[in-house]
């Protein structure tokens, strides 16, 4: 099973809920407490995250960082395209 997790910058989050709607695993929900801006923020509430990055892609405030369990024999380099186009 693929496992992943997200780190959410809760003080940046404005509680728009777009990440919650985009999560295929229903791993995210709004907090019951509020941040310093007065918003309820997105939180990981289940441990079934797969690290698919959907939530991070749609986050307008770029508040989400995603990690995934490394697959043992996986690509060595990151998908950076800089060498090709610099």
């Amino acid at each position: 099973m693929i496992t992943g997790t997200v780190i959410i910058a809760t003080e940046i989050c404005k509680g728009c809920e777009l990440c919650i709607a985009s999560c295929p695993q229903n791993s995210l929900a709004l907090s019951s407490s509020i941040n310093r801006k007065g918003y309820r923020y997105a939180e990981l509430v289940l441990d079934n995250c797969t690290g698919c990055i959907n939530c991070a892609l749609v986050c307008p405030d770029s508040a989400i960082t995603v990690y995934r369990q490394a697959k043992p024999a996986k690509r060595a380099s990151s998908p950076s395209l800089s060498a090709q186009t610099a």
Partner: peptide, 25 residues
């Protein structure tokens, strides 16, 4: 775990003034 997604470096750390959920961000 390995990092699979982070905010692009070319975006500053300045919090955006946009309304919650706005597509501009």
């Amino acid at each position: 775990m390995e990092l699979v997604y982070a905010k692009p470096e070319t975006l500053t750390d300045t919090p955006m003034h946009y309304c919650p959920g706005c597509g501009h961000g």
